[in-house]
Nucleic acid binder design. Structure first.
Lengths: 349, 349
DNA sequence: AAACAGACCGAAAACGTTTTCGGTAAATGT
DNA sequence: ACATTTACCGAAAACGTTTTCGGTCTGTTT
């Protein structure tokens, strides 16, 4: 029932707790035979050290926290998956929290983690967060923090990102290379840096290929939803019947567009090519299947944990924490919603 | 930098740590003025009690663990979401672990949680798990455990389930009511109870409506995947050209079927009605959108935490832990992949 | 004036571990 | 025979909190 302690083992064996502790940790100043006796009894009694007591002494929990805007998302859940997998290798457990895209919640949840004295924190900013004192303070107190995906360069700490701008450039470039002349872009609320970067990537690609930028070809999805994409399609095609390429900043919107176009009897990709962003699970199940940009969530998670681990070690050694930035490469996944481009199928970017 | 402790506060104020501790907890034997002085200083110094020390004394962590087969799943992530939300209300944090459908991993991860002395565990069995000693032992040691979704009645503890059999019955019944005569069922590897129950629900519905059961109408998807559904479609329609209804035991398979049927130019729902199970996010984005059974993951998670909390309280009070079973209702979501049934749109089951 | 009741505070033990610093006994060296 | 090393073990402090049990003052009652 109740857990075995060092004291009990020591009492049974007529030893001191110090000796028992040292025997279990294979100290050199303990007789080999004593060690054996202790270890054998500990095994028989199923002894496991009390984690609280250890933490109290060592100031380490072997627990880290991850705070994401929203867990129920393929992208974030695969990041968490990557973190958990990597953390497991080093004996760390992971507490998961959500900010629900709320600044106040982000502050609250962060405090919860800090108060639990966990070893480190990984977080992706909420879209509403525009002040960063709560995070900067936590770092100042000596807590290792790693930012990923939704980041800001106003916080000095290790970060894992994908280059949304570069990826959006590639997406747009792909549409250009298959011959699209009038390319619309569906963007979102211009708060998160990622959304802005995708917009910029689109613009840069047009410039690079000498296609005039037309602001009226920019549409905005407020809810990042399937329905938004579906509803915007009518408006887009009415205002610009000559659109032959659409780059949506996130897959569900692109899938909504696909459905909208089909209902208007506009052939994809013959008449209009559509490309999304994120490679959601369902994007390969649509008809036609969706060309999109793959963001490897698992890789982001793994690398974020690796950076955190590095900070943890630096802290233990009393070194100053570095602020490395790791960029995870994305790639374009070409499926059936875009016209074929000869001699190429998948371009790493 | 380093955290403030009771001792430091007491030193500054010329009090003992006991007095400071009691002042902060509003004990009645402390002078009101002293309390104020202490509380004010504690606030100014940003004092927060050391969680390790508290846990060491109280034997409580205010942390619980949840072990799921696979986090990157809409169903499981929404369960976890429900758990986290509910746990937050009571000041609990949640450690998330995965068994990856492996029996060995399940054992390993469970041990990790137990060794961390967390307060309680919620788990959904891996498909491979057929022995339950590792869990029963944990319960015997006094750890509160709640099972959800993938459960077994061989473990005596609180559980949260949906009635897969009843839900599958409704799904099949719906096909029957809209006039389907030859109804195929795609099932999976018959290990998890949920899969078996869905199979049984299908059979029971046929019996109830006097439709002869034909074993050759049962097909098996090994990987629960979109591709499986897609690939099985040809075989099904070749062997049984008169099929007019298909009940797939999980949405991605059903969506694969949808695509397969379209490629064979078989009209859905005119010629064949298709129903899935689980209401995955994408099932409403397909063409035609998929009729399916909704499993409310959030509700399952919330209720599982509530049961765990009850166990936690019972343990604290020294009472014997009860083994309540909560059944979460599912409902059929009727979309466009099944023919319409007059005078009914949504049947709660 | 003796006895008593509050009011207020502190000493100390406990939770279980780890690690430093001695200490004892035997073994080795001169 | 004495000094010194080696091998082994234990005492004790420390991590930070909580709570029991007294203890010392006042001030009040007979």
């Amino acid at each position: 029932m109740s857990k075995v302690t060092l004291k009990e083992i020591s009492k049974i064996l007529g030893l001191s707790t110090s000796t028992v502790s040292k025997a279990l940790k294979d100290y050199s100043d303990i007789n080999a035979e004593t060690k054996l006796r202790v270890q054998e009894l500990a095994n028989r009694l199923n002894y496991t050290p009390n984690a609280f007591a250890q933490s109290l002494r060592s100031h380490e929990t072997k627990i880290i926290g991850i705070l994401v805007p929203d867990l129920v998302h393929h992208f974030f859940s695969s990041i968490i998956n990557g973190v958990i997998q990597e953390a497991e290798k080093y004996g760390y457990l992971v507490i998961v929290l959500q900010s629900h895209e709320s600044y106040e919640d982000e502050i609250k949840q962060l405090k919860l983690l800090v108060d639990k004295n966990i070893d480190g924190i990984m977080l992706s900013l909420s879209d509403k967060t525009v002040k960063y004192d709560h995070i900067i303070n936590v770092i100042k107190e000596g807590m290792p923090v790693v930012l990923f995906d939704k980041i800001t360069h106003l916080i000095d700490c290790p970060k894992v990102i994908i280059d949304d701008r570069k990826a959006a450039f590639s997406a747009t470039e792909h549409l250009i290379k298959i011959g699209c002349k009038t390319i619309a872009h569906i963007t979102g609320p211009l708060k998160p840096k990622t959304t802005i970067d995708r917009y910029m990537g689109y613009k840069t690609a047009l410039e690079t290929y000498d296609i005039p930028f037309d602001k009226s070809l920019i549409y905005t999805s407020e809810n990042l939803s399937f329905d938004d994409g579906y509803n915007l399609t009518g408006k887009m095609m009415a205002e610009h019947p000559n659109i032959d390429g659409i780059f949506a900043f996130i897959d569900p919107v692109a899938i909504g567009v696909l459905k909208g176009l089909r209902e208007q009897n506009i052939k994809v990709p013959k008449q209009v090519s559509v490309i999304g962003f994120s490679n959601w699970f369902m994007s390969r199940t649509t008809t036609p299947s969706l060309t999109t940009i793959d963001q490897p969530g698992g890789e982001i998670g793994k690398n974020a944990f690796k950076l955190l681990l590095k900070s943890l070690n630096q802290k233990r050694e009393g070194e100053v924490l570095t602020s490395e930035i790791v960029e995870i490469p994305t790639r374009i996944v070409i499926r059936k919603s875009t016209k074929v481009i000869p001699f190429e199928t998948s371009i790493p970017i």
